[in-house]
Design a protein around this nucleic acid. Sequence first.
RNA 1: UGGGGUGUGGCCAAGCGGUAAGGCAUAUGGUUUUGGUCCAUAUAUUCGAGGGUUCGAAUCCUUCCACCCCAGCCA
Length: 560
Amino acid sequence: METLKPSNFIRDIINHDIKVEESSLSRVETRFPPEPNGHLHIGHAKSICLNFGLAAEYNGVCHLRFDDTNPTKEEAEYVEAIKRDVKWLGFDWGQHLYYTSDYFDKLYKCAVELIKKGKAFVCHLSPDEIRQYRGTLTHPGQNSPYRERSVEENLELFEGMRRGEFDEGSCVLRAMIDMSSPNLNMRDPVLYRIIKNTPHHRTGANWCIYPSYDYSHPISDALEGITHSICTLEFEDHRPLYDWILNELSLFDSHPKQIEFARLNLTYTVMSKRKLLELVTGNFVAGWDDPRMPTISGLRRRGYTHEAIRKFCEVIGVAKANSIVDIALLEHCLREDLNQRAARVMAVLNPLRLVIDNYPEGLLTEELDAENNPEDSSMGSRKIPFGKVIYIEQDDFCEQPPKGYFRLAPGCEVRLKHAYYVRCVDVIKDNDGRVMEVHCTYDPETKGGWSKDGRKVMGTLHWVSVEHAIPAEVRMYSHLFIKPNPEDEGDFKSNLNPDSLITLTSAMIEPSLANAAANSRYQFLRHGYFCVDTDSALNMPVFNRTVSLKDSWLKGGKAK
RNA sequence: UGGGGUGUGGCCAAGCGGUAAGGCAUAUGGUUUUGGUCCAUAUAUUCGAGGGUUCGAAUCCUUCCACCCCAGCCA
């Protein structure tokens, strides 16, 4: 089934551009330009899918460019992590891997050109003074006293900056635009600043001056032949500057078009790098790849498929309105994908012993057939050992069942998935009245879970044979925050969900899972989708709950 | 108060002058050896508000309102 790609304003712009330029060059070239100062999250995935997706759609290419112009914040470690994440999402930049730092020489030459044109000057105002001279939102700024220096002097000073003759913070190179512009970005913005004693992860100590984002980005785009430079809304105000830079530098024959879209926000989580870093450094989570994090690595470890993430990025659309997408939509895309591919297995999370009184005490283990995936018969079936004593879920037995409950209760009959019908005949409790064991009788005529007499049972329970069960640790993850918008009021950390991780250590899983490979995904029947965590040990597999199954009983049925 | 943006059902989002797509969520019913999946049905007389143009407006004009972004030598 071919799903029609929803239209969006960026596609409209590109379609228009291609039509207008059809006689000349109608290529499409985009780029994903992360700064290597943190890990990628699902918000970046939106941008990645957009940029790589658009390029693919128009038979163009998408570059991966590390925007590494600030050595005080960037690290090589992030570069590798980012590459891995983009690859995992299934995108290929081919030969188009770039670094802004590769352009430092060219960027420097362009700056010299600007100075020669009288469009840039070295300013010795302190950071504080620059701020004062900039004016405010409602009042124009004032020209820097250094604005009138001669081209020769500026050239000499800038060269001196490059040679390291000035202290950090003592001077900067500024564009000469308009200090009275209502757009603060045009009030003689800083083009170069001095950063000393902080080696750059790629250029080491070769440079002590570094270009600003506003200056380097348009030039990098133009150098690479980018046609559409897609970024987020907050850069809308910077577009005049982006265009100014390229217009002043006549050496480029292409002038990329900057297009801004609204970044992704999701309910029950946070997306800013700063806040995510805070969660990691404050040990509120176990690291960047903690399965509760919205990072690509976190989602991956949680058990998300890249297909689900990509589908999500497609269905949320692209627009310019700020929005917060319901995380239920992400989970929907995940379930939709996992439902097709995940093998069904049985796992009892909170075990309760069930003894079948009339089941023979034979030495031979009875093995039952179980389909692996009702959605996909090509996934085949497996044998599951049955027994006189099995584990069922504590929640699947209730001594005094509420209306509408159709699991096991005294006197009631249910089906054990793939096995037999059993009827509860006795309940054993401890001194505190807690149910310790349930006794049942089974009907040998219902093997496989069918009854010849057409007798109906409402409930079907999953189970695991006590004799064959394998203990496992199961990590039940849920939303990281208790509020749809954690940033709403006060410190976002005060809205952390204390139950975002509940570790179950006495779960029992069916023996077929004994050698489950790390990262493999399963559906634990009636529970949800789980994946094998890398923390798994030889005798203690660890499963992460990726997402629960929808539960109309918990949701509405139980309440009624 | 200067500038730049955005406002379509609970959440996203199409629509680009011809009489409100789609998805999620929600509710109900059907199927079902997962209270899963699947299937069906329901939910905006109305597009931030008012005024205007037009035979006809969410789409054009106008006024107003709300929200977001900008005063880093961050990106």
